[in-house]
Computed example of a mutant assay.
Amino acid sequence: MKKKILVAVDGSVYSSNSLDYLIRLFRQDQNFSVDLLAAVSTCCGDQSWMSDIDTQRTESTVVLQRKAKATRYLKDAKSRLMRNGFPEEKITTFAHGSDEGITNSIYHFAKENMYDSLLVGRRGVGRVGEMLLGSVSSDLVKKCHEIPLWIIDGDVTSTRFLLAVHTCTHSLMAADHLAFILQNNPKAEIYIYHSLAAFGSTPPAETEEFHSKWGARWCDKHLDVGTCLYKAHSQILVENGISEERIVELPPRRGIHPSHDLLRQAKRHNCGTIVIGRRPRVDKGLLGGVSDRTTKNAQNMAIWLVG
Rank of each mutant, 00 (worst) to 15 (best):
V7I: 15
I151D: 00
Y107A: 15
W150Q: 06
K111I: 08
V120T: 00
K78Y: 03
N84D: 14
G121D: 06
M131A: 09
V120G: 01
R57G: 10
T92F: 02
K143E: 13
L6V: 13
H145K: 13
M50Y: 00
L149A: 03
S41M: 05
I147C: 10
Y73W: 11
K67C: 02
K69S: 10
R123H: 01
M131K: 03
G85F: 04
L74S: 03
Q56S: 11
V63G: 10
S117N: 01
G126L: 05
D139N: 15
V141Y: 05
T55D: 04
L36Q: 07
E146I: 15
R123F: 00
L133E: 00
L37Q: 04
I106H: 01
I151S: 08
D54T: 10
G85K: 04
S18F: 09
F109Y: 08
K143I: 11
L133S: 03
S60K: 03
Q30E: 15
R122Q: 00
M82Q: 11
C43Y: 10
V136F: 02
E112G: 00
L74I: 04
N84K: 13
L19I: 15
D139G: 14
F109I: 09
F94E: 12
D10C: 15
Y73T: 09
T61P: 03
M131N: 01
T58S: 13
V120Q: 01
Y115W: 06
D10A: 15
N104K: 08
C144D: 06
I147H: 03
M131T: 07
L118V: 10
L37M: 08
K143R: 14
S51N: 10
L74P: 06
S138N: 09
L74C: 07
F32G: 09
G126Y: 01
R122T: 05
R24A: 12
T93H: 02
F26A: 07
G97H: 06
A38C: 11
T103F: 06
I5T: 13
K90F: 15
Y21H: 12
H96G: 03
S117I: 00
E100C: 11
F26P: 08
G11N: 14
L149M: 02
D99V: 12
G85A: 11
D52T: 14
D29H: 13
H145I: 11
Q28K: 12
L119W: 02
K69E: 13
D46V: 13
I23L: 09
N84F: 04
R122F: 00
A68M: 09
K90R: 15
Y107E: 08
T103L: 10
C44Y: 07
T93L: 05
H145P: 12
K142C: 11
Q30C: 14
Q56E: 12
M82I: 14
V34Y: 04
L149Q: 02
L36M: 08
Q47L: 14
